[in-house]
Design a protein around this nucleic acid. Structure first.
Lengths: 288, 288
DNA sequence: AAATAAAGTTGAACCGGTTCAATTATAGTG
DNA sequence: CACTATAATTGAACCGGTTCAACTTTATTT
């Protein structure tokens, strides 16, 4: 059987309370500290995190809810997150809701039942449908952090990407390079980030007195395939852009494939700029 | 305060033991069952998974250790895995070891300390360095499943991809189509899957009496960039292949970029076949 | 050296479930 | 109907930690 705190106490000749104090970093008398440390080492004692959690009602876990595990934007953030929480001895329970509201709700409940000590929520396209679930966390004083999504009615911490401004700058850059016919591949019509990115595009056009052309505005649903077909559609419509702005990584990839397939040379015939950093960016010549 | 099993027992007028039996699916007398169900509903009782775990020493969690969260091969398996364990009310603690042995060891220990009920281990390139850690699980009767990696000395369950054979078939296919100069973009020299895939390639060549040409064997380290530069190198070496076999998804992508950049047309001048299913496969014309 | 303050230790009770020996209710038998 | 056999219930003890009031030891003051 695994040694317990009582075994340690017995071996060291002190009380359980003393061992507990040691484990929690409180001060012991020198000679007791030495005895406890010796006993811990000899028994190879490891504290039981579950038992610990029972009394102080902490699970030392953080729930992370993510639309899809194959979304590189989200997973790269989770990687950094994991590295951070690990330092405090927390672990991450990762839930993929497969871009489905009901599964999202289910997962939020699931994590509640596991008494996670905190929640990190990645963007979904139905912010209003899960307000109750999120409030359930807040009312129980469980901290919630929302990543890059628009929940105006919820009092949670948020980490926002300045989508509108980033978008504006990207498009402005193209305009400064002389482009006047700039196509955009938007994400999905429901998502708040997509709306923001679209707004930045429109604002940039407006600032420079360029009128919006509907042929040059497509929706690619944030996916490889969507970006591919939106780009094909745009480039085959007859009304050719001189630059394309793809509003995420996957659609940029899809756009690249479409462009190369149509034998359009970048950047001579067409410029392209994409949101998100792009593993292949460094490799492609001319670089994006 | 959250209601406990004792509150339920009190409200229903039965003992805690009876409520516990109900929660564990044992039979109650009809009238007791009704009272308990009513009390649970009225109090909105949820069982405390942590307390449950303390007595029977189960954490209802499964540790999953993965080289990189941005590896689509691994994450797509994790997605399916999560969906499966969720049905049994298990959750997944995901650990990304960032392709680093020490972090891998640390993570294995970390998950042990959290008393996970099982471990799923994704391939690493240092199988021998973690044997002790894995044995620590096995000696404590914690089931371990190893995914597509070669641990001949460990008595764990394994899920293997038949890398050698799949590789053989891919290459054989190319040969049957008339190719004689077939390039391969291998993964990394240390990984067992890569060795297997390489072996399949060589076996196919041997079967058809084609001799190996070193110009046509490159290593791409399983990455986009690696695939890209390996392909560039091969295609610029002067000794041109008529077909290329890229041994994973990322390198296939990198190879495609390289090929299109060199203005080589697929499949007229060059055929390409890739290991792993490929989100863009459907979209690219001619299809891979 | 005695009185007081501060620091450290003790161990029983607790967290919210499960378990099981003892007990009680129901069903089956002749 | 009495007598078993079986099924269901009870509640105290337990899982492995934390906590805190009561106590002991050490340090400081006078």
């Amino acid at each position: 059987m695994k040694p317990t705190i009582r075994d340690v106490a017995h071996k060291a000749g002190v009380s359980v309370g003393t061992v507990s104090r040691y484990l929690n970093g409180l001060k012991l008398r020198e000679y007791n500290r030495i005895k406890v440390e010796k006993a811990i080492k000899e028994l190879n004692f490891k504290e039981n995190i579950i038992a610990k959690g029972l009394k102080n009602n902490r699970s030392m876990t953080i729930g992370v809810v993510i639309g899809s595990l194959t979304d590189i934007f989200a997973t790269s953030i989770v990687t950094a997150l994991e590295r951070t929480v690990e330092r405090e001895n927390y672990s991450i329970i990762l839930c993929d809701y497969e871009d489905d509201v009901d599964r999202l709700k289910y997962k939020l409940q699931f994590l509640r039942d596991r008494s996670v000590d905190g929640l990190v929520l990645f963007p979904s396209i139905w912010p209003n449908k899960i307000i109750n679930n999120v409030n359930d966390y807040l009312h129980n004083n469980i901290p919630v952090v929302i990543i890059d999504d628009d929940f105006p009615s919820l009092e949670t911490d948020k980490i926002m990407v300045d989508n509108m401004n980033a978008s504006f700058q990207a498009v402005e850059r193209l305009i400064e390079m002389g482009h006047r016919k700039i196509g955009i591949i938007n994400g999905s019509k429901e998502s708040s980030t997509s709306k923001e990115r679209s707004k930045g595009y429109l604002n940039a056009l407006k600032k420079y007195g360029i009128s919006k052309e509907s042929d040059l505005v497509k929706w690619g649903n944030y996916s490889n395939e969507g970006g591919y077909s939106a780009t094909k559609e745009m480039l085959l419509s007859g009304n050719l852009p001189t630059a394309i702005y793809a509003t995420n990584y996957y659609m940029t990839l899809g756009a690249m494939v479409a462009i190369q397939e149509l034998n359009i040379s970048v950047p001579h015939e067409l410029s392209i700029i994409g949101f998100d950093r792009f593993p292949l960016s460094e490799v492609i010549k001319p670089a994006l």
